[in-house]
């Protein structure tokens, strides 16, 4: 409490002094310069850097209802004098973000100043008269795929380098579903072996990519040639194909395997006369072709129990 009182008294004090000063002070004392050398002449004035007259930014004269599409007709990097917006970019701890003038960051980032919504609308309107309606037959994706099973993909590149050619534009990707090709079991198997990892089992797509020729036209022709060649080759049956061994088989054929033989020797009759023999063959093929898991193993076990006349699993 005492301190508080003191605080007040200090304030009072300061104010009384103020009175004294304000009443006595008549004119402001000038700061005197200490002139030791007693030079009379004035020091030479420093040379001012020359200022060049530049026109004020163009943005200052723009009306606020102008047609922006005419001001900024195409893609271009940011220019502070042309864009009438007080945008800023960057940050500092204490100062304000740098303004648009001499701000390299704003020039580095991409901008969409040429594609503002009104401009897009105008361009769409201009293009509309060249459009035709989408064919009704291709209304769904399934129909599209049914009528046009072959799919080719190329990329066009457009950018502001000195050359308008991009070497990536030559690459052609061709894609077709294997089920769309008329192949029988042998041909399908051979086709898959010929294309190798270009076939994706999960999606059923065969994908051929060509990039060896310099233009996309040539690459496309090459893709088509490859597809045709592989297709016809897969229908050919060579004489050496009959020499296929069990190891070469792409799937498990029970009748050709040891399992069948041992079953026959066990029962001493051909397998089609054994009771539950067919079930057993299915169970083994299932186990071998679909991989073993708890389900396939259980069916296998159950059929073996039936086959051998054992009591069922608890």
């Amino acid at each position: 409490m005492a301190l508080n009182l003191m605080k007040n008294s200090i304030k009072m004090n300061t104010f009384s002094k103020l009175q004294v000063r304000s009443s006595s002070g008549s004119s402001e004392p000038q700061f005197r310069v200490l002139n030791l050398k007693v030079t009379k002449s004035k020091p030479a004035p420093r040379r001012q850097p020359k200022k060049f007259d530049t026109a004020p930014p163009r943005a200052h004269q723009m009306p606020t209802d102008q047609n922006w599409g005419n001001v900024w007709p195409g893609p271009r990097s940011f220019h502070p004098a042309t864009v009438p917006l007080p945008v800023r970019q960057g940050y500092g701890e204490k100062q304000a973000p740098p303004s648009k003038y001499a701000n390299a960051e704003l020039m580095k980032i991409p901008n969409f100043l040429h594609l503002t919504p009104p401009v897009i609308k105008r361009q769409c309107d201009a293009l509309r008269k060249f459009c035709t309606p989408w064919p009704k037959e291709l209304s769904t994706d399934e129909n599209c795929e049914k009528h046009f099973p072959l799919e080719t993909t190329t990329s066009s590149y457009c950018y502001s380098s000195p050359s308008i050619r991009n070497s990536l534009a030559r690459i052609v990707t061709l894609r077709i579903k294997l089920s769309h090709l008329p192949l029988d079991q042998h041909a399908k198997d051979k086709f898959r072996r010929l294309v190798g990892d270009r076939y994706d089992e999960n999606t059923d797509y065969v994908t051929i990519v060509a990039d060896r020729c310099p233009t996309s036209k040539q690459n496309f022709d090459y893709c088509m040639y490859l597809l045709t060649a592989v297709f016809h080759e897969s229908w050919n049956v060579e004489p050496w194909e009959s020499k296929k061994t069990l190891e070469d088989m792409e799937y498990y054929d029970w009748t050709k395997n040891q399992s069948c033989k041992s079953l026959e020797s066990m029962f001493e009759v051909p397998f089609d006369k054994i009771e539950h023999g067919k079930e057993f063959s299915e169970a083994v093929s299932n186990l071998m072709n679909n991989g073993e898991n708890l389900q396939t193993l259980k069916t296998y076990g159950d059929t073996v129990r039936k086959l051998l006349g054992l009591s069922k699993e608890i």
Binding site: V87, Y91, Q95, A96, L106
Partner: peptide, 27 residues
Amino acid sequence: AIEYLFPSGLYEKRARPIMKPPEEVFP
């Protein structure tokens, strides 16, 4: 509109282009 015209993927959000009233810009 600024986000549309000047799309910036800079990680630091403060470093992206802005257009704010001067009261907010200047400390």
